[in-house]
Amino acid sequence: MSERALVIERLNKIFTTPNERVVALREIDLQVKQGEFITVIGPSGCGKSTLLKIVAGLDVEYDGKVELNGQQIKGPSLEKGFIFQEPRLFPWLTVEKNIAGDQSLKDPKVRGKVHELIRLVKLEGFEKAYPKELSGGMAQRVSIARALLRKPDILLLDEPFGALDAFTRSHMQEVLLNIWETNKTTMIFVTHDLDEAVFLGQRVVIMNPRPGHIKSVLPIELSFPRKRSSLAFQEMRRTVLNEFEKVEEESYTVGAGI
């Protein structure tokens, strides 16, 4: 068995506002192996994005153990790449400069790597284009390339394809799987799309709201490349859906106050 890249034990997160205390995450336990592809799915408000921000080091006010490669997470670092829901490119920089970010393109090594990544995300010919000239899917591919340039051990994706149309989304999923197979980067992918979760993940983490906690973790034992139309995929999807519906029933009975 390969090394555990990410270890989360008894993670609790409480948001305090002047009026109330909201338990965002309760007793989260999760272990992610090096090179594993994990998808996290759950209804909105289940704390899946909060969990991802904590792993990214963007939110450091939590209780419990969150370790990446044996190191407690205390802030952002280059080992942890983060893809936001929106591409968040710098509008004043061209595609290649956006990917390079704080690194200089004058350095032939950086330049070479940037262009290699542009090929990987299939954006050849757009090196000098500005973000306003890109479609949503293209812009999100730039942001993925930007994260990959830093050679992260783990890539955290917060509903990255949520704003894209169905065709572009399935294309992007294939691009991402291709990257994962090439680079062997550990992936944690948050989504609210059941199909996406089953299509991408080796394990699907199902979360439940109020307070946010992990309901179950289901392994998806289907080999890549997966076919959505295959019987095995449909069956797997149904299993996850069943689990998911149990979550929804529970959350409706618990959250009867609405």
Binding site: L58, S77, F84, E86, R88
Partner: peptide, 10 residues
């Protein structure tokens, strides 16, 4: 949001 990106990219 862009500030957050710069933070992630260190």
């Amino acid at each position: 949001k862009l500030f957050e990106v710069a933070n992630v990219l260190q």
